[in-house]
């Protein structure tokens, strides 16, 4: 579904992505992890052209998304993107957030768009909040609405950029559960996340990144059980709770 060929990206003289080559298959759930500044957020943002790249190619269903003549808006509407900061539109209700793209780009009649949005809100457990304003929701609820909104254009691919990092701890699981349900329904997903439990349970594959390179690609069992790269071993040791042995 997505192929990356030797993708290189610089911020000025700093190279954020180094020769990233990767293939993500339809229906696959890929978790990207790594220390801060390793390029994982940059990587996921290049997948829908939120960041320009300076070298290489990214193909979505065989089309070069950085190629000339591609309709950026059309292909973006086929990719759901969930941000760390939710980015709900505060001047629109929950329902308004979820119907904006289908009405504006999908040319769906309002009634139909609302019906679809309500079904999606039901799926993330928030149909009863359809008329609420975003500011009336908790962080976890806002992120679930953001997921419903991203699903509203019925994209075959969903990208998650640290979807639980801005949440209070007690709200993380409600978002992860929605993501798990989505994965089990067969959605192709790329998730940048620090939730290693989620990676273990839900991912088909884990990519470990550091300094702009993908250093390790493995199944969750292999990655967590027998990490190959020394940086990956170090990373897994670092994220383990310092109090793990106390119990």
């Amino acid at each position: 579904m997505i192929e990356l060929h030797n993708v290189n990206k610089w911020y000025g003289s700093y190279q954020a992505l180094v020769d990233v080559t990767e293939t993500i298959a339809k229906g696959e759930v890929v978790v990207v992890c790594g220390p801060s500044g390793s390029g994982k957020s940059t990587l996921i943002r290049t997948l829908n052209r939120l960041e320009p790249i300076q070298g290489g190619r990214i193909l979505l269903d065989g089309h070069n998304i950085y190629g000339p003549g591609i309709d950026v808006n059309a292909f973006r509407s086929r990719i759901g993107f969930v941000f760390q900061q939710f980015n709900l539109f505060p001047h629109l209700t929950v329902l308004g957030n979820c119907t904006l793209a289908p009405i504006q780009i999908g040319r769906l009649p309002r009634a139909e768009a609302e019906q679809r949005a309500l079904a999606l809100l039901e799926r993330v457990g928030l149909a009863h909040k359809a008329q609420a304003w975003p500011s009336e929701l908790s962080g976890g609820q806002q992120q679930r609405v953001a997921i419903a909104r991203a699903l509203a254009m019925q994209p075959p691919l969903m990208l998650f950029d640290e979807p639980t990092s801005a949440l209070d701890p007690e709200m993380v699981s409600e978002v992860l559960l929605v993501m798990r349900d989505l994965a089990q329904a067969g959605m192709t997903m790329v998730c940048v996340t620090h939730e290693m439990g989620f990676a273990r349970e839900v991912a088909d594959r884990v990519l470990f990144m550091d300094e702009g390179r993908v250093l390790e690609r493995a199944t969750p069992e292999a990655f967590f059980g027998r990490p190959q790269h020394p940086r990956a071993r170090q990373f897994l040791a670092d994220i383990r709770s310092p109090f793990a042995h106390a119990a």
Partner: peptide
């Protein structure tokens, strides 16, 4: 406005 608002609108496919 927070930068994320425009970015998010564009990510949804809005021109």
């Amino acid at each position: 406005l927070p930068r994320g608002q425009l970015e998010c609108a564009r990510a949804l496919g809005l021109s």
